[in-house]
Nucleic acid binder design. Sequence first.
DNA 1: CATTACCTGCAA
DNA 2: TTGCAGGTAATG
Length: 295
Amino acid sequence: MPELPEVETIARELRPDLVGRTILDVSFDWPNQIKHPRPADFAAALRGREVLSVDRRAKWVVAALGPAVDGGEPAVLAIQVKMTGQLDVVSPDAPRDKHIHVVMPLDDGRELRLRDTRKFGRLAVYGPAQADEVLGGLGPEPLSDEFTLADFRRILRRRKGRLKTLLMNQEFLAGVGNIYADEALWRARLHPLRSGAGLRPDQERLLYGSLRDVLNEAINRRGSSVDSYRAPSGAGEMQNFLNVYGRTGKPCPRCGHATRRIVIGARSTHFCSFCQRLPVRDRSEAAAKILSSIT
DNA sequence: CATTACCTGCAA
DNA sequence: TTGCAGGTAATG
């Protein structure tokens, strides 16, 4: 699932159900999903800790936890839902299916569940210093007040490489994935194969604004339920307002020309064949790429 | 840089 | 049966 708006929605909706609760225990049936500490030590790292806050960093749900019952330092529970993970707080009596892989009973009689068809989701419990280390390597949060146009220009000009690849690079910018990279580029009328370093100042400003606008709009609509993504409260609405993603062959809402799909960095990429034209000097480089991908 | 691995399900 | 899926990590 989940890019920034989807994970933000999950964190917001889990917050009232988790903050103030104590995690009594944890069970899991797919040890590969436990990233840290070792699966055998995972339950002990979590047991008896109170949830102090629930937030999002990049595409992680991050819960600050109080000290364990026997004292010691606080901890951080970090959950990455990746493609198909769904988090929910429910009664133990709620129906279960074979895709529920992690269950954490809480002190109010309910339980936090991770349902994850493809088992790509990951959970980790870190000490405070270790959490800073892991999450600190990620790029800036595009929606934070501290992330200014000047900051965006600075990081953009430092990088070579295609805009699409750059926007999805989590060390460049945190939280943007395949859907919102395509949508932001469409709004900014920029071809995904263009180099980030070659933009005019007005194009840089437009892309900065487009990114923040599309991410904010998607949060307001509680994310895009294109496939299996569900917030705790159910499907989002943003899938109904996407302009290019998943619309291959359909007319561009802005100009009516066909939406195209190409592959960049092994990810499908959607753009308008007319409003997102490449500047002439970039075309020969991109031509082979476009011709080699069907449609 | 590109490819493969991690997993399952679904639609063409 | 093949190809594809919102994400990363680990390989050539």
